[in-house]
Design a protein around this nucleic acid. Sequence first.
DNA 1: ACGGCTTAAACC
DNA 2: TGGTTTAAG
Length: 678
Amino acid sequence: MPVARPETSDARVIAHVDMDCFYVQVEQRRQPELRGLPTAVVQYNEWQGGGLIAVSYEARKCGVKRSMRGDEAKAACPEIQLVQVPVARGKADLNTYRSAGSEVVSILAQSGRCERASIDEVYLDLTDAAESMLADAPPESLESIDEEALKSHILGMSREDGDDFKESVREWICRKDADRRDKLLGCGMIIVAELRKQVLKETEFSCSAASNNTELNKQMLAKLSSGMNKPAQQTVVPYSAVQELLSSLPIKKMYVRKQLGGKLGTSLQTDLGVDTVGDLLQFSETKLQEHYGVNTGTWLWNISRGISGEEVQGRLLPKSHGSGKTFPGPRALKSLSTVQHWLNSLSEELSERLSSDVEQNKRMASTLTLHASAFRSKDSDSHKKFPSKSCPLRYGVAKIQEDAFNLFQAALREYMGTFGMKPQGNKQETWRITGLSVSASKIVDIPSGTSSIMRYFQSQSTVPSCAADGCVQEHVAMTPSASEGCSEQRSVETQATVPEEDTSVTYTLPNSENQYKDNDLVSEKDVVFCPSNNATDVPTQSQSQSQSNKGTQIKKTGRKINNSKEQNLGMPSIVDIFKNYNNATPQSKQETQEDSTVSSSTSKRANFSSSSSHCGEVNQDWGYKIDEIDQSVMDELPVEIQRELRSFIRPNKRFNTGKGKSDGSASSIAHYFQPLNR
DNA sequence: ACGGCTTAAACC
DNA sequence: TGGTTTAAG
């Protein structure tokens, strides 16, 4: 809710930092010879040169624009260097950009409250730092002012004077008679310049920034103005410049944490004749409420006055993770097994990212959501409402894969109209899937004091991820034509969709020789369909052979996995805990227990932990019961883990409020986390 | 029915 | 709530 006048609003310094054509810079850091050349980052090179997702400023000068195809870019700028986004599992892999973004955040977070707004943007609340500077070393006391700060653009200040402008900036910053706002802003300019230099030095990335202290609409102004002077420049919006800036601003350019660019903006123009934010000022709050409802009306009234009431949140990490892919037009998926294949890949990526999140940030997600888009082949018009579905998230690749697929099937049934459809009919004429995504949300911190057990559980789930790749032996009978279709030159997508057309799939059980198979993760129901699964690989016989080898002898699949393997060696019994639990509630039984409608039965199954799972805000459920941990098993655990386990086993605590399922005693470890959490 | 993929948030 | 919709980049 917008707050008209936040108490904290007095003379703050808010900055917005935006990396310049970030993906391009990341690639140029990797390939320094590209520096200074017109460069663009492109994904999926096969169709018309791929789609551009980032364009260097040199290339922009030649008229290359984001969302051109590679071919168009070449036409516009023949010398352009096109760099491809990395591909993993047949889809774009943005991880290098994500971690480059984290590098930047970790630098910027040092000097004030910092909010990660996107992969390449942050907001900073520099008020404290500016106040300290003003108190301890105000600009006018400095013998020299940072050159970079002197290059700032100050809104409302003429910049024509050529060489003199730096001097003007210096004067502005050092003005004795400035009000406190402007003084703080002057300090802010110096701090921001310093930060930008530090980012450049430590990451080699350049960025642009803007700062303001208008107590009004901080983020909006920051965002607005940092886009104003790019690349590698900084802008300042003094309080005195705000009114003018706002009043002439086209309504659709108004950026307030999303909103006015789209339908609402259009409606304001056509229905109320509002073209600029200034125009909006003429309308009373109630008038606006009549048109757009109470909330939106008030909100509009506020933002037209620059009031957003939003503070910079101190959040450095994303609130969710997702992995998705589209299958446009002719590539739309038409068989369950292909859908499953892709869900498996997406789930793998998601799981990997979740694992890193646990390791690096000690937090876990608790909801898994599946998202798809579809149309019916007859109804060309029915391209909308494939329902999303979610369920509690269980860690472990195979579990995520299983749950995602179950969610999909539940959604599909609903989409098709509750009933019908043999799942196995690999040939079917009805639906087409044009997009799939899996995401993990409701991420909570792991309470301190539980880190080693979390690592332990985490490693349990990462190992079989490799097992799922190779150990589960899927035999995919490729027809000759399909195999031929997979020449190295073909796009990964083309390859990956090959199995969809004409494959007969044989499901087999997991390789029982794999010492590390654990039924929790690789069980009958975890059989995965994984045709030529690594889409980047050409699916030759020898390779699929080597893949299953890789599965059985786990080594050299990366340090993380190796570590976990070593951890596993001494102590298989924790695995049994999981295994026993899962065996105790196999799918079939579970379904009979829950008397539920057809459409929900599958999603209940995806829910897996049948008992549970209202654990309040923590809302984690990993699906094993603490009371199933036998003392003898405990004894086998490392002392450290035992100690941690005991620390949450407080038998008398009960958290299971909620609508009592039959099994009221069910409590998962997650429940024990709750009292420790905060 | 080719601009792909991610994230966030409002709203119902 | 969960699910849908909108938006941005």
